[in-house]
């Protein structure tokens, strides 16, 4: 109905010649080749540029030698909480979280002080972190908390977004891929930048070196 009418209008606007078999083969080939355009040259070695950029993007960052140190690092982020009440992605459930903490392994709740999710990649060009949805990595944990803690393995830092796409299988492309480059902000009142708007006020990146 609408579909056929619109496609017909498009074809007649483009003229008769455009959609030959030959052209379709070329277009199929372009889809397979996924050509990439000009990128922004990195100004420094990959990890050092990545860290410089994420800090410029107003992340807070710490590096840990091992995943085993994660729980104490998160504990240090909430020194005044006697019994931390946080949400953690199941992807990092098995890290020995204290039994006396209140930990939600479900989707994000209405009020979230702190949520921890697992990153898929870091991008040095822009100082961004890529978080993909999965049953063990719910998307809402990225957006609901006051403080979002992202766990990233150092080896997952790449130069450009194109490098992230190249590593991902299109067949299993996740439902949500969030490229996060800082805390939530807005300048819609008086042009003044305010953090946060709807999402986290603080994004804390934990880079695991081993």
């Amino acid at each position: 109905m609408g579909r056929d009418k619109i496609l017909q209008r498009i074809r007649s606007a483009l003229g008769e010649s455009h959609a030959s078999e030959h052209d379709r083969a070329l277009l199929d080939a372009r889809m397979d080749q996924r050509p990439s355009g000009p990128k922004v040259a990195l100004g420094a070695e990959r990890m050092s540029q990545f860290l410089t950029k994420v800090i410029a993007n107003n992340f807070t960052v710490e590096r840990l030698a091992s995943q085993q140190l994660l729980v104490s690092a998160v504990r240090a982020l909430m020194p005044d909480d006697e019994t931390p009440d946080i949400s953690v992605a199941k992807a990092i459930q098995s890290l020995g979280w204290p039994a006396d903490w209140k930990i939600n392994y479900g989707p994000g709740r209405h009020v979230e002080r702190l949520c921890v999710t697992q990153a898929l990649a870091g991008i040095a060009e822009t100082g961004s972190v890529v978080v993909a949805s999965a049953p063990d990595n719910p998307t809402t944990l990225n957006f609901l908390p006051d403080m979002h803690v992202i766990v990233l393995r150092a080896e997952d830092v790449v130069d450009h977004p194109e490098d992230v796409w190249a590593r991902m299988a299109l067949e299993n492309w996740p439902r949500a891929v969030n490229v996060i480059s800082g805390p939530s902000r807005t300048a819609d009142v008086g042009g003044i930048i305010v953090r946060p708007a709807h999402g986290p006020k603080r994004v804390h990146l934990i880079v695991i070196d081993a």
Binding site: P107, P135, P138, T139, R175, A176, V179, G182, P183
Partner: peptide, 21 residues
């Protein structure tokens, strides 16, 4: 700016086992 805070690629509805979406 080089980037905005969020760029999101959304694809289809909630998948099997997903807790949100």
């Amino acid at each position: 700016m080089d980037v905005t805070s969020y760029v999101t690629y959304s694809t289809g509805p909630r998948r099997e086992g997903d807790l949100d979406g």
